[in-house]
Amino acid sequence: MKETVSSVVIKKEWDIVGARQAGRQLSQELGFGSVDQARIATAISELARNIYLYAKEGEISFEELYDLPKVGLKIVARDKGPGINDLSAVMQDGYSTSGGLGAGLPGVKRLMDEFDLVSDEEGTKVTAIKWARP
């Protein structure tokens, strides 16, 4: 069973904070522990910053997942930006075209349980799922 809960538009720098606060709140309501809440909030922050830096505009949406007894949170980051040229390079630690630490996408993959990245000239879609430990 799936239920779309909410989405946050990423357009201004402050929206990065708004998105991670929304995700943190939601993960708390879903019963995630404090470490998982931090993992989720950090992952959202990285995804939202990527949108803001590379695509200027996009959206992060949240879905509650019920695969009982498991409960999860699915995060989808979508933009209509230029897309990622070299998909294997962006998944390497330390790779950055913006002077950052290059921890973003590979870091998000490690913080979350499931991770999927699709990108072409029409935009980029990152899907990440975290399951709550019962």
Partner: peptide
């Protein structure tokens, strides 16, 4: 603790 764990997992 949660920040420390998250940073190391991020690779920082």
């Amino acid at each position: 603790p949660a920040v420390s764990m998250t940073l190391i997992e991020l690779g920082i």
